[in-house]
């Protein structure tokens, strides 16, 4: 049962990390900082999926990157592009739409139940 649940949870969460990353990186950040921010915000994301994901988003033109060598440890900073911003907005409104759709459908079903019981 646990395996079933975690499988469904994983499927439901797939894609949310992309939205969250694009939103967070409106202010430039590097891999580990983003990982920290996301896990503090309650996103369950592994380092080994997040780091490759950042490079993929960059290749798609949704993020740009720049090496910051000012500090002792050089870090690659990512920032959301305009295109990434637009996509993040679209994805977010889709998320909201799905959320309210699920709320509606749950409400309708509950009403039907009480309706038929009467």
């Amino acid at each position: 049962m646990d395996a079933t649940l975690s499988g469904h949870l994983q499927e439901l969460r797939r894609g949310t990390v992309v939205v969250a990353s694009l939103i967070v990186l409106r202010t430039p950040g590097y891999g580990y900082s983003l990982l920290e921010t996301l896990s503090r915000a309650g996103f369950e994301v592994e380092a080994n999926t997040l780091y490759p994901l950042l490079r993929r988003l960059e290749a798609q033109g949704l993020l740009t990157s720049e090496w910051n060598t000012d500090e002792a440890r050089p870090r690659k900073f990512y920032r959301t592009t305009e295109q990434g911003d637009a996509i993040a907005d679209t994805l977010r409104s889709e998320w909201t739409r799905i959320d309210s759709a699920i709320g509606d459908i749950a409400k309708t079903t509950a009403n039907d139940k009480t309706g038929s019981a009467e």
């Binding site: 990982l35 380092a47 090496w67």
Partner: peptide
């Protein structure tokens, strides 16, 4: 080259934490 640098930085960050 790029992944080498980035991956090391990320590992060091995590180790430091």
């Amino acid at each position: 080259g790029d992944i080498d640098r980035e991956l090391r930085a990320s590992i060091e960050d995590a180790v430091d934490a």
